[in-house]
Amino acid sequence: MARQVLFVQGAGEGVYDCWDSKLVASLERELGENYTVRYPRMPNEDDPSYAAWEPALTRELASLDDGAILIAHSVGGTILIHVLAKQQPKPRFGGLFVIAAPFIGEGGWPSDGIGDCKDVSEGLPPGLPIYLYHGAADDVVPTAHVHLCAKAIPHAVVRTLDRRDHQLNNDMSDVARDILSAG
């Protein structure tokens, strides 16, 4: 049976169809047939809110098997981290891989609906491997955000990728390599 992967999209008009679908296609190629990638469309992608995305993510998380891999891009990563920190979902996940997530709080971006990221670490599922990726050439979310996230989640592995943009140049090989090496 193929291992489940949940990919949570980023935010913005057309992101699901025109942008993050390319990340999913790269991920599927890199992981191969032993992995099944689920890519649900999040509500109101052009005007995302924690209030709208949290119930959708809660349903998705509850439907996953133990050992499933979680991957999220940009604002989707920030929201997913908060959902995991607040809920302690039932399945035990194999890892959380977050790409270009904005940090919410001091030094990062403000948000009305998402709480400050500085306190998320204590609420995350114990023992969950966490990887944070950020392109050094990201002109959407400044690279400083990955370092702020790393302070908030001290056990996370941080990968800053040279010459990669907000979409990691649509190349998920580094993420797939970490997933495959983690087992």
Rank of each mutant, 00 (worst) to 15 (best):
D46C: 10
L180K: 15
T36W: 04
V75S: 01
A156I: 06
L161C: 09
P102L: 03
R163K: 15
G76F: 08
C117P: 00
L64H: 03
D47H: 14
Y35G: 01
W109V: 12
I114R: 10
P89V: 03
P43M: 11
W53N: 09
Q87D: 09
K86A: 14
R41M: 11
K151M: 11
A182Q: 12
C117E: 02
L6H: 04
Y39S: 02
S173G: 02
Y16F: 15
I114D: 04
R177S: 09
R92E: 08
D178T: 05
Q167R: 05
G14C: 02
A11H: 10
G12V: 09
G105W: 01
R163T: 05
V146A: 14
D66S: 05
P55R: 13
G95L: 12
R92A: 12
P89A: 12
A68F: 03
G67T: 06
D20S: 09
P48I: 07
V8T: 12
R3N: 14
Q88I: 01
G105L: 02
L57V: 12
R41S: 11
P110Q: 11
A182I: 05
G105T: 03
L161Q: 14
V37D: 00
A100C: 15
V24G: 06
E13H: 06
N170V: 01
D65Q: 14
G67N: 07
R164N: 14
A52N: 12
I71E: 07
F103V: 00
G123H: 08
S74G: 12
A51H: 11
G77M: 06
H82M: 05
V146S: 14
E106A: 10
S63D: 10
T143D: 02
R38P: 00
D47L: 14
V158A: 03
D66W: 01
V75Y: 11
K118M: 06
H147A: 01
G32A: 12
L64Y: 03
E106S: 08
D46F: 09
V24K: 09
N34H: 13
P43D: 05
S111L: 04
G127H: 12
A11P: 05
D138M: 08
I130K: 13
K90Y: 00
G94A: 13
W109P: 01
A137Q: 11
L27Y: 09
G183Q: 07
V24C: 11
V15P: 00
Q88G: 15
L84E: 06
A85E: 05
E45C: 05
